[in-house]
Design a protein around this nucleic acid. Structure first.
Length: 269
DNA sequence: GAAGGCCTGGAA
DNA sequence: TTCCAGGCCTTC
């Protein structure tokens, strides 16, 4: 599940690898995840150079000359790579070739929950305008205001991209454990000091995960095809039945709104 | 609010 | 063979 740390890892890598590269050919192997007409994509980007890469929430973009932005959302199983060898299979969607290098940028997505689209100019499309700030952008006051008087369970609110962008199931579970908050607790009933602590630990978890190159649970890989390492440091996610690293209690797993929640019933209240 | 649907590989 | 995972959207 690529979330903010995985996308940020790819942004940092692709920024270095793609800046200044001129696209010689955009090869569209299938249009399942393409939200912009194939011909428009090709005519807009071929022959143009990439300026930089960036991120908004869990969306990654490549910024091109003349104001074009090529956006990627990896869904659950999306992979964005920059390598010479490309795995040619039915899950490959896009292959971009550049002048003066044998390395190519490619997008693979097994479950096709991802999306790729292009924008022109500064205007953001609707799906991006709806996103809330990410945990690094929001102020402590803004963060605590998200939860005031809210009756929904805290885990669901944290995963709501229109309130706060960037977090998914892995980092919400990890953050709630570090903050000592039970995932089912109504958001409005978490104390102010706990909310402040939550904001702090979310940033810490994300920063640690970024420095580890993200979490490779199922399909996520870095742009060179190697795995992230943060999954080795997960305290609750995917550890049902194992012992809490703080108190030894067995980690529990329950469903909250159809999603798995992992928590320590002793450390999290 | 909660549940269903998209989609696929891998586990049960 | 059936079920499950889940980011995000749609529908109840």
């Amino acid at each position: 599940m690529p979330e903010l740390p995985e996308i940020e890892t790819l942004v940092r890598e692709l920024k270095l690898k793609t800046a200044g590269r001129v696209l010689s050919q955009l090869d569209i192997r299938q249009e399942a995840v393409l939200k912009t007409p194939a011909l428009l994509l090709k005519s807009s980007l071929e022959g143009k150079s990439i300026l930089t890469a960036g991120r908004v929430g869990k969306f990654l973009y490549l910024e091109w000359e003349r104001g074009f932005r090529l956006w990627f959302h990896l869904g659950m199983t999306g992979q964005l790579g920059w390598t010479e060898a490309v795995q040619e299979d039915t899950h490959l969607h896009l292959v971009l070739s550049f002048e003066g290098t044998r390395e190519r940028l490619w997008f693979r997505d097994i479950r096709k929950f991802g999306e790729v689209f292009m924008t022109e100019g500064a205007a953001l499309p609707e799906n991006l305008k709806r996103l809330g700030p990410d945990p690094f952008e929001i102020s402590p006051d803004g963060f605590s205001a998200l939860f005031r008087k809210r009756t929904g369970v805290i885990k669901n609110l944290l995963m709501n991209q229109t309130l706060l962008s960037g977090l998914g199931n892995i980092y919400v579970n990890e953050s709630l454990h570090r903050a000592g908050i039970h995932p089912k607790r109504p958001a409005g009933r978490v104390s102010g000091s706990r909310i402040a602590r939550l904001h702090h630990v979310i940033r810490a978890v994300l920063e640690e995960a970024i420095s580890d190159g993200g979490s490779s649970i199922d399909d996520y890989i870095r742009s060179d095809g190697t795995r992230g390492r943060f999954q080795e440091r997960h305290r609750v996610y995917g550890r049902a039945g194992e012992r809490c690293r703080d108190c030894g209690t067995r980690i529990r797993r329950v469903q909250i709104s159809g999603r798995s929640a992992f928590f320590c019933g002793h450390c999290q209240r």
